[in-house]
């Protein structure tokens, strides 16, 4: 098991309390857990398997199958850089490089202070706005490396 900080299981118990204790609840529970902790801690998966009476191997299988789940702690703000065909052509690579300069992390990595996680995604379906970058909940079309500081400063909030 990767080294992970001890987690507070009370949030897990609350989540488990609101679903029937059976296998079909698994994905819903994992989604709520992911929202609560920002990732799926090992201890929580073990507890979920125990309570829902699903083999741990199955829980691990589901947790690793979906891209929406992460087993590593993630930053508070998740930055997604689209690297689909249109964005790739219009300079998604430079956006990723600029992020690497600014935050010191590459795609798929998280800053040490757990503020940002950078991910590259294949297509967000907004090719007309290429290159597209999503910071938190905010979409930036026609993104330019020179404006990166602004994206990072303003993107964290959920407001539009």
């Amino acid at each position: 098991m990767a080294e992970q900080p001890c987690v507070d299981l009370s949030k897990t118990e609350a989540i488990l309390g609101s679903y029937p204790h059976e296998e079909p609840s698994l994905i819903q529970v994992l989604q709520d857990v992911h929202r609560a902790y920002n990732y799926l801690p090992c201890d929580v998966l073990v507890r979920v398997a125990e309570v829902l009476e699903v083999p741990l191997a199955k829980v691990f299988s589901v947790s690793t199958f979906y891209k929406a789940f992460s087993l590593e702690p993630q930053g508070d703000t998740i930055i997604k850089v689209c690297t689909g065909t249109a964005c790739h052509i219009r300079g998604a690579g430079q956006l990723v490089e600029e992020l690497e300069r600014k935050l010191g992390i590459g795609a798929g990595e998280t800053t040490e202070d757990l503020k940002f996680t950078v991910k590259t995604v294949n297509c967000v379906g907004a090719c007309a706005m290429a290159p597209v970058m999503i910071v938190g909940e905010k979409y930036w079309g026609g993104a330019k490396p020179a404006r990166m500081s602004r994206y990072l400063a303003e993107g964290g909030s959920d407001e539009n």
Binding site: P55, F60, T64, F65
Partner: peptide, 16 residues
């Protein structure tokens, strides 16, 4: 044991 990950990374493995 179960199937883990997907696509290229898919493999049969025990939990964690």
């Amino acid at each position: 044991i179960a199937s883990t990950d997907r696509g290229w990374g898919r493999e049969i493995a025990p939990p964690f």
